[in-house]
């Protein structure tokens, strides 16, 4: 009950901010449109499917979840610095109530964001099948990773710093190293090797495998994402509990 009330509050708090709506829903759709324009400009005889909708849509859906770190981090940082969280810490809420209350609405947003982006992609030629639903599910672990990063930053940093780390830095890292903007095969070398160590590329590849229904191809990539998710989400929970016990003061 407490979790649902708090989750509901957090969802309202995020959705009533027009900037969040733009980055959460509008920006992935703009990217999708831009890539479809680029793809249309490539002559068919070139045989280059690099920016085909089947490849860009799962990539953009995965990249879109990077903004969840910004949402969760900003919300937590605002709640902390405005003492709203202090008020709630004095209530009978438990740390689990807080963590789930911050995570669940953002995961719901991730799922809705993914569905809307895939539906938009369908208008641009992506076939909608049961594999599309699988792709939505496959995106969720990296969404949890981003929520974890956001909560970790929000536990220690103020709003401005969260905006810098989770907004500018993380979204750029996720964009470049995921291979969504420029396929990694084109760059190669240490850049590609670095990307393969980080979770962003694997998140995109898992979604790409899911959308073509290649179940065997999903797991190797998803395992890397799950590892990062476990580490960062655990760190976020520990940081939050530390704050809740007032260890920072």
């Amino acid at each position: 009950m407490k979790v649902l009330l708090f989750a509901q509050r957090n969802l309202k708090e995020i959705l009533r901010d027009p900037i969040n709506l733009f980055f959460g829903l509008g920006f992935p759709l703009i990217l999708l449109f831009l890539f479809s324009v680029i793809n249309a400009a490539i002559p068919a005889e070139a045989g280059n499917t690099m920016f085909s909708i089947g490849k860009t849509a799962p990539g953009i859906v995965t990249f879109g979840t990077a903004f969840l770190a910004l949402f969760s981090g900003m919300l937590l940082a605002k709640d902390r610095t405005s003492s709203f969280l202090l008020r709630l810490f004095a209530s009978p809420m438990t740390s689990l109530d807080f963590i789930l209350g911050y995570t669940l609405p953002i995961l719901l947003m991730a799922a809705v964001q993914s569905v809307i982006t895939f539906l938009a992609a369908a208008f641009l030629g992506l076939p909608l099948t049961v594999d599309t639903l699988l792709a939505v599910l496959v995106v969720l672990p990296i969404a949890v990773f981003f929520v974890g990063v956001g909560l970790l930053c929000g536990s220690f940093l103020n709003e401005k710093a969260v905006g810098g780390v989770c907004g500018a830095l993380l979204t750029n890292l996720a964009g470049w190293f995921s291979g969504v903007w420029i396929p990694l095969e084109l760059i190669g070398g240490p850049f590609k090797k670095t990307a393969e160590i980080l979770p962003f590329y694997h998140g995109v590849e898992a979604a790409k495998e899911a959308i073509i229904g290649n179940l065997a191809g999903i797991m190797p990539h998803l395992l890397v994402v799950l590892g990062y998710t476990a580490v960062f989400y655990t760190l976020a929970v520990l940081a939050f509990r530390l704050k809740m016990r007032g260890e920072e003061t």
Binding site: E13, S82, P92
Partner: peptide
């Protein structure tokens, strides 16, 4: 209960929603 130094309210919720939220959290 506590009224902290800062106003400690949820900015994008209405007055009614803020009050009902706290009442609900306390059961």
């Amino acid at each position: 209960n506590v009224s902290p130094q800062e106003t400690a309210i949820a900015p994008n919720l209405t007055v009614f929603e803020n009050l009902a939220l706290i009442a609900g959290i306390y059961g």
